[in-house]
Amino acid sequence: MSFDEKLYENCPLDAEGNQLVLKADHLCIQFGGLKAVDDLNLSIKKGELYGLIGPNGAGKTTAFNILTGVYKPTSGRFFLCGKDLTGKAPLEINRSGIARTFQNIRLFNNLTVLENVMVGLGNQIECSMLQSMLRLPRHFKTESEFRRRAMELLEVFGLAEFADYLAQNLPYGKQRKLEIARAMATNPTLLLLDEPAAGMNPNETQELMDVISFIRQHFGITILLIEHDMRLVAGICERLTVLNFGTELAKGKTADVLNDPEVIKAYIGE
């Protein structure tokens, strides 16, 4: 999991010469008569922590679902490091380097914490079904490699002591962390976090903020984040896009956006 410069060499550049990891152009999606996302443009710089906020029903999660291939956009395109991923299947998008967490936690409850991370690692070490079935040496080699890498990740996230717990038996805050760990296991270039602080108490939120800043430094990863907790957003996001009824209401530096009267109106009302 080294910081691989080669990965970014095809990235398009913005006006200031920064490499853009994610570039979304005019993304739209329509469900019948409803335009859930209308003309969304994103350009996220390498290593940036970008926030996507907005009132309930603004289309934030729908935007995530487009970026991870769950939905196909009605129009518009998006690129990861210059590679067009529009309309690709979730599997391919994940392998290209976008990983996500979910608003409502979706862990593999009947697997242990360690195994959850190992599922995420699955694509990085090859071992065919036949090799596993016949217990060829390759199986044992990859299995111990899986275990080693998964433990490494769990240690980073402070979950190592819970490795053998079933995922469903973890406390809520730890489940959230495990979801991030599992997403990191797929070795992404861009991590999408869907309301990571939802349902957390202030202590847990603080811990989560630390984890997020830590993984940014440790893995040099770019993060796109949906969040309602303004304290968290103001604390860690560098730039924001505000969505309202599917359209962009404001975008720019966090402090500027949060003081925008239009944004305050959308959130609190007049």
């Binding site: 769950v70 996500r100 979910f102 593999f108 409850n109 599922v119 596993s132 899986f146 296991a185």
Partner: peptide, 30 residues
Amino acid sequence: CVQNIAKSKHGRAITAIKDNEIAARSMGVN
């Protein structure tokens, strides 16, 4: 054969599909 599949990378992926297909798909499980 069945137990070896169950206790391997592939078995984990299969259980992951059973537990949560959407999450499994976005974790790169084929």
